[in-house]
């Protein structure tokens, strides 16, 4: 048959195999993911200094292009960019431009006139970051801050960093992801990252209505019950449940969801005694997770927030570096 090659790899990597965009974890090998984690470790050390800024992105302009509002995610990207000494522009255009009927490509053309060096993009459509990367002028880096149900690669990587900090590595780990996999860009990215980094097993626990068709092809095992799914796992990742899921006949009620899938101390006891509990936030207490667990000793949810800044500094500086090196190699000139 005619094969159409997955261009995910070529679009986000330079000829030398370095990052130039960060759109998806598809096509990134273990070496690259490990490099991202290692670089983030260095940025964590920077965060402990008296002056927490490094000059890597001095003179660069980073535009936070949020078509879907998320104050939390945008703030961590903003802080990460500022710690890299970039100038930051926040644009929440979720309701303005598109409501006026302006197409995404027109919006982009207008923004490019501002001579930006990097767009951090969040959009409600899967593939939006890929699309924008395919449209921008060479030299501009695109960082995916969440596109539809597709991917949220920085979230997944900060989760990997958190797991590595607590478990020392990935080999032999059993990881359970619980909840709405179908609509979750976080879960898709996590499953990919965990497989690439070589965990022993990824289990997804959810009713069939919240699982994508062929979910196993992502590299995970489906468990219908919490008891069997959590048995002996080292890491439990709870996903956020959006309330509108009740409307589409995907779930009967929050109460029933909590009863079956909500992580209580009782269910947590089924996991390995040293299992850590993660959640990408914001948490619906009493829907996905009991407060006692979210705030309990096995919860690492606050570490995730800290690691978020370091991971974003890592991918932003790596992608900007890849763009700059490519431009240097192309023209034989630099701006240093």
């Amino acid at each position: 048959m005619s094969v159409v090659e997955d261009p995910a790899r070529s679009i986000q990597l330079t000829d030398d195999g370095d990052l130039r965009h960060f759109l998806t974890l598809d096509g990134l090998d273990r070496t690259m993911l490990t490099r991202i984690l290692d670089t983030a470790d260095s940025f964590i050390e920077v965060g402990a200094r008296r002056i927490k800024n490094v000059p890597l992105l001095r003179g660069s302009t980073v535009v936070n292009l949020f078509f879907e509002s998320s104050t939390r995610t945008r703030s961590t990207f903003e802080l990460a960019a500022k710690r890299l000494s970039a100038d930051v522009l926040n644009l929440d255009i979720g309701t303005s431009a598109t409501a006026k009927g302006e197409s995404l490509s027109d919006t982009l053309l207008n923004l490019e006139a501002m001579a930006s060096d990097m767009f951090v993009v969040r959009h409600s459509r899967s593939g939006a970051a890929h699309f924008i990367a395919s449209q921008v002028t060479p030299g501009v880096a695109i960082i995916n801050a969440g596109d539809g149900r597709h991917s949220h690669p920085t979230q997944a990587m900060l989760d990997m960093l958190t797991i590595r900090q607590h478990k020392g590595g990935f080999e032999g780990l059993k990881v359970a992801i619980v909840g709405d996999i179908l609509h979750s860009r976080v879960a898709r990215a996590q499953i990919r990252a965990l497989n690439t980094l070589g965990v022993e097993e990824v289990r997804v626990i959810a009713p069939d209505t919240l699982l994508p068709t062929d979910v196993e092809s992502l590299g995970c095992r489906v468990d219908d019950s919490m008891q069997s799914g959590l048995a002996d796992v080292d890491v439990i990742i709870m996903l956020r449940l959006q309330r509108e899921r009740m409307e589409g006949a995907l779930l009967p009620s929050e109460r029933e969801f909590y009863r079956v899938y909500g992580l209580s101390n009782e269910k947590l006891a089924w996991a390995h005694p040293e299992a850590i509990v993660m959640h990408p936030g914001p948490i619906n207490r009493g829907v996905e997770i009991e407060s006692a667990v979210a705030d309990g000793p096995q919860s690492v949810i606050l570490d995730q927030v800290t690691n978020g800044i370091a991971i974003r500094m890592a991918v932003m500086s790596m992608a900007m570096g890849g763009q700059r090196a490519t431009a240097w190699n192309r023209t034989g000139e630099g701006s240093s």
Partner: peptide, 23 residues
Amino acid sequence: LDISFYRDDFSRLGLNPRVRPSS
């Protein structure tokens, strides 16, 4: 000291892939 984050040739070479935390 790992000076990778402070090098003035970032715009030519990109980020050092082997950066480790300073201590």
